[in-house]
């Protein structure tokens, strides 16, 4: 990629989102030196963290030539814009965040919250990881996932549609097919 006008490296943003949940383990994990260094090594320049209802506040830093810049906020109505401007998304396992990111065609690492009681959310992330639409990680394995990931090998997700459902409902109720 070409350098920007002022000669600095092009902006490559990593966007971390926890949605409306409280997922301190994820925020804490991306705020570790290991993860930040790994991201910087892979050419990312900015780390933007949406921390939701969590109480752990990551360290803000300006970044520069040696390290990644870190910024954070709690909630925003323009999550879609942040997703669009990101080069990599690290998300909680909520289906809303997952599919919004996939539909924008952004590389995605889903981090499963192991503290949740009824942890059915990992099912979806693991299934989509098996189909190579995204990477699935735990808070303690994010750095390895980033180090080993090969974004070229990810398969773009084609959005599904609900016409089969509508068809079956219509047929059941006796309506003719169009």
């Amino acid at each position: 990629m070409a350098d920007t006008e002022d000669g600095s490296k092009p902006k490559k943003i990593v966007f971390v989102t926890v949605g409306t949940t409280c997922f301190d383990a994820l925020v804490r994990a991306v705020d570790t030196q290991a993860v930040k260094e790994e991201l910087f090594r892979r050419g990312y320049t900015h780390l933007l963290i949406q921390m939701g209802r969590g109480s752990y506040v990551p360290w803000k830093s300006g970044g520069g030539d040696e390290s990644i810049a870190v910024d954070h906020f709690t909630f925003s109505s323009s999550i879609a814009d942040h997703l669009r401007s990101a080069s990599l998304v690290i998300s909680h396992a909520g289906s809303g965040s997952i599919f919004e990111t996939l539909r924008l065609g952004k590389p995605l690492i889903v981090v499963v919250n192991e503290d949740l009681m009824d942890n059915h959310q990992s099912e979806l992330a693991e299934e989509l990881a098996e189909r190579k639409h995204l990477y699935c990680a735990r808070p303690q394995t994010i750095d390895q996932t980033i180090a080993n990931m090969n974004l070229e090998s990810l398969i773009p997700y084609t959005a599904g549609d609900a016409t089969p459902v509508a068809k079956i409902i219509n047929r059941f109720l006796g309506f003719p097919d169009d």
Binding site: T20, G94, S95, G96, F99, A162, V165, N170
Partner: peptide, 19 residues
């Protein structure tokens, strides 16, 4: 709510509203 609502609205998009 949330993802559930998004999925349901997807279904509604394709259902014939006059039926």
């Amino acid at each position: 709510s949330g993802g559930h609502t998004a999925e349901m609205l997807n279904v509604l998009q394709v259902l014939q509203k006059d039926r």
